[in-house]
């Protein structure tokens, strides 16, 4: 991987994240996050404040690990049967900062299928990535849904 450009290295990393979610390897997905890493899905378009405005998800690694535990838990009713998903990423843009942090953003489409019902989620994701070896760890992942602020369906598998 050493001869890869930052663009293709980030793409490989993001595609791997999407694949881990699609294949249900949530334990490996969680390990893409730094110990202080945060997953943020704002409830409002353009939201800047996670403390004074409620978020759909605003969780750091320890809380995310509870979420992942629950994905494995046989009794999680809303995950019975387990949804199957396709995560698609596109329009990936990568920027290397002077601070050593790599910032990336992309659009996404996620199809989720469960109990003969199919749902579509879409929006934009942005990342702050810390380079580790020839890969990365996620410091911050922000997911802005196109329908943030509207009436939303339940969200089970992360995007």
């Amino acid at each position: 991987m050493l001869d890869m450009t930052p663009q293709s290295r980030v793409e490989a990393f993001l595609f791997r994240e999407a694949r881990l979610l699609d294949t249900g390897d949530f334990a490996a997905w969680l390990e893409l996050y730094a110990p202080e890493g945060v997953y943020w899905m704002p409830s409002q378009p353009g939201q800047t404040d996670p403390l004074n405005v409620a978020s759909i998800i605003y969780e750091d690694y320890p809380i995310l690990s509870i979420r992942v535990q629950r994905l494995f838990e046989a009794r999680a009713l809303v995950l019975t049967p387990m949804p199957s998903t396709t995560h698609m990423l596109s329009n990936i843009e990568v920027e290397e900062g002077d601070d050593g942090i790599v910032r990336a953003n992309c659009t996404f489409l996620c199809i989720q299928y469960q109990s003969s019902e199919q749902k579509t989620f879409a929006g934009r994701q942005s990342f702050e990535l810390e380079p580790v070896g020839d890969s990365y760890r996620i410091l911050l992942k922000r997911v802005d849904l196109v329908n943030a602020g509207g009436t939303l369906p339940l969200i089970t598998i992360p995007f």
Binding site: S43, I56, R67, L77, V78
Partner: peptide, 12 residues
């Protein structure tokens, strides 16, 4: 929240 680990099971 729509992604709540609590209310989602109620709604289900």
């Amino acid at each position: 929240s729509p992604a709540s680990m609590i209310f989602s099971d109620d709604v289900e």
